[in-house]
Design a protein around this nucleic acid. Sequence first.
DNA 1: CCATTACTGTTGATAACGTAAACAATTAAA
DNA 2: TTTAATTGTTTACGTTATCAACAGTAATGG
Lengths: 165, 165
Amino acid sequence: MATDERVTQTGAEIDFGTLHELTGYWLRSAQINTYRNVRRFFFDEFEMTPGLFGVLEIVDRNPGLTQTAVANAMGNDRSAMVAIIDRLEKRGLIERRPSPVDRRSKALYMTAQGKKFQAGVRERALQHNREFFAVLSAGEHRQLVDMLKRLATSTSDGQPQTEWC
Amino acid sequence: MATDERVTQTGAEIDFGTLHELTGYWLRSAQINTYRNVRRFFFDEFEMTPGLFGVLEIVDRNPGLTQTAVANAMGNDRSAMVAIIDRLEKRGLIERRPSPVDRRSKALYMTAQGKKFQAGVRERALQHNREFFAVLSAGEHRQLVDMLKRLATSTSDGQPQTEWC
DNA sequence: CCATTACTGTTGATAACGTAAACAATTAAA
DNA sequence: TTTAATTGTTTACGTTATCAACAGTAATGG
């Protein structure tokens, strides 16, 4: 849906087959819609992405953390962290300092500007969270999060992982 | 975690701050883990992706559909469909035929080989769905899907969309 | 009938993200 | 002290989403 804004007459009688029986499909659909929404709601305004937001939040709450530590906390590869920190550093939101105990690693800290910035984003995030998930009752909401937490560490071959989260 | 396979000593006492209060975060985590898992479980084996699988399933159940129709059904931009159909056609699973009623559009059909292939993938998908979501009880599972369906069409500014699904 | 508007598949661009392999510098362990 | 492991980094490839534009075709209004 780029230049044109028409809504075609497809919708109605399409058979989704097994797709609608697969929980993973609904999980993906819900996630895509949520991301699309949160992006339009405030990520565009702040030039944020889920990855950037996560790093800012974690570094803000855990000053001095290593890049690899943050990567592990977010379930990312540490190589993905480089570009993210680069961008945040270039925007003056975050700071790489040499670790005093390990000359390989770099300790991450928020700048004063970064703290102020993230405070604004955080508030909008909580606001969006309230409004977007208003289609669920409080009890449902609580139960949903409980289930998602389990799914975030579930595997198909046995018991939950312990790796991250 | 590319060449090296070590698990660093980070995990324990990291404060995730607002992140853990955001439902979108958990939604994303659950989705990422699910995708990672389904990929290792059988997508690699069949060289599939969620997008390819979805198209195959929809075309299989709705022969003769237009590319744009499939795109809308999946909530995609129609431009994304081109590469997907190209790949599936190159693999002999799907077929583009000129529409008899509209010279612009192309009707999509499964090949015999495609039908057989998709039958196998579909079976594995249902199997994985059962095993992976075994961390939920039957009632929870049902309720989760119910909530995800609502979130797939929710917006932060008012009532659900009617666009797709 | 014709001009305008809309829709089709397509291409190309940008970007986020995930995955993976490799490297130099540094540290830890045998 | 030799060997193995970890850190940040770069490079690469692939998937997916989004957006803008184009030529060919269809539908619509006047």
